[in-house]
């Protein structure tokens, strides 16, 4: 098994801000909860099983449960928060499609949550898109 180093996440870059002004004076800004933005992420690859695992680390911890999304991918989600903690992908059939499949699974998961509890899904999808090459490095090295 090859495991890559943790990749630190810049919380400021991942934040989604919504500005609202009341009567040109009072300024109201809503920002993503810091609990929803991972502090770091990493990947590992099991060569024998051809399984790629992506992990996200947060400022708070909780127990997780596994959810299968199709035949090749499962998500480890927080039991209470629903946050994405791990993504496990069976690379036998998936090959280069792992980012696309992961994003699709997270989007499906997001549909089960209310509008105000989807920030983590948007952040994790963006992180996968932006850091796909670094996360794939575990497979090359493994």
């Amino acid at each position: 098994m090859n495991q890559e180093q943790w990749i630190r996440v810049d919380p400021g870059a991942m934040n989604r801000r919504h500005h609202h002004k009341v009567d040109d004076g009072v300024e109201v800004v809503w920002s993503t909860s810091p609990y929803d933005i991972p502090e770091a992420m990493r990947s590992s690859y099991d060569r024998e099983k051809r399984r790629l695992t992506i992990e996200f680390r947060y400022m708070s911890e909780e127990s997780t449960r596994r959810e299968q999304h199709g035949p090749y991918l499962s998500l480890g989600v927080g039991k209470n928060s629903g946050r994405i903690y791990t993504i496990e992908i069976d690379m036998h059939a998936v090959l280069d499609e792992w980012v696309k499949l992961s994003i699709k699974a997270i989007s499906e998961r997001a549909k089960q949550r209310s509008e105000f509890h989807r920030s983590n899904y948007e952040v994790t999808k963006r992180l996968l898109r932006e850091h796909a090459p670094e996360l794939s490095a575990a497979m090359a090295a493994g």
């Binding site: 009072v26 809503w30 993503t32």
Partner: peptide, 10 residues
């Protein structure tokens, strides 16, 4: 309710 940081200024 919004599960977000709310900042209000001015």
């Amino acid at each position: 309710a919004r599960n977000a940081i709310v900042s209000i200024a001015n």
